[in-house]
Amino acid sequence: MTGTPRELVERVLRAGRERDVETFVALMAPDGYLEWPYRPPGVPARVQGRPAIREHLARVADAAIRVDEHRHVVLHETTDPHVVIVEYDAHGTVVPTGAPFQQTVIAVFRVRDGQILSCRDYVNPLPLIEALAGTARAGA
């Protein structure tokens, strides 16, 4: 796939929101990885390689949280032409309870040879922890 780093980031964000696992994986470099430096228990620190990314995304695509919309999206192109920083608010639903969900995200993407090499996703883990706790209470 071709395009500027910004265009690639826009495509991968859309694929993630649409739960289009195959398009998301195709945009990743074969040795690409996703990282979550700040995460709740049970979320891996890193998922690397297309097969592992595909497996992870397929597992979480319709799990506890469904993101339906990205709001207030701001993409920052940096002095490094291969790095794009994006900030946005993810709005969706806690699937088991139907409760609304909102998450603020800042992600740093690194692009290499027309593919996403890495995405370091700095999410606030508190809304996710709260949503998962509500899911556990609903199932109790």
Rank of each mutant, 00 (worst) to 15 (best):
M1G: 12
M1D: 08
G3H: 05
E7N: 09
V9I: 06
E10S: 12
V12N: 11
V12A: 10
L13K: 11
R14V: 15
R14I: 12
R14Y: 09
R17C: 09
R17S: 02
R17A: 06
V21P: 01
T23K: 06
F24T: 05
V25E: 00
A26N: 05
A29I: 04
L34D: 05
W36C: 02
Y38M: 14
R39D: 00
P40M: 13
G42L: 00
R46V: 12
Q48K: 12
R50C: 07
R54H: 11
R54V: 03
E55A: 15
H56V: 04
R59F: 11
V60L: 02
A61K: 02
A64Q: 13
A64C: 12
I65C: 03
I65T: 01
R66P: 05
D68F: 10
E69Q: 15
E69N: 12
E69I: 11
H70I: 12
L75T: 02
T78P: 00
H82E: 15
H82D: 15
I85P: 01
I85R: 06
I85K: 04
V86A: 13
E87A: 07
H91M: 12
H91D: 13
T93V: 14
V94H: 01
Q102C: 13
Q103Y: 07
Q103P: 02
I106F: 13
I106M: 15
I106E: 10
F109M: 03
F109N: 03
R110M: 04
Q115N: 11
L117P: 02
S118W: 02
C119R: 12
R120S: 11
V123A: 14
V123M: 14
N124D: 14
N124Y: 03
L126D: 10
P127V: 00
A136Y: 07
A136K: 12
A140N: 07
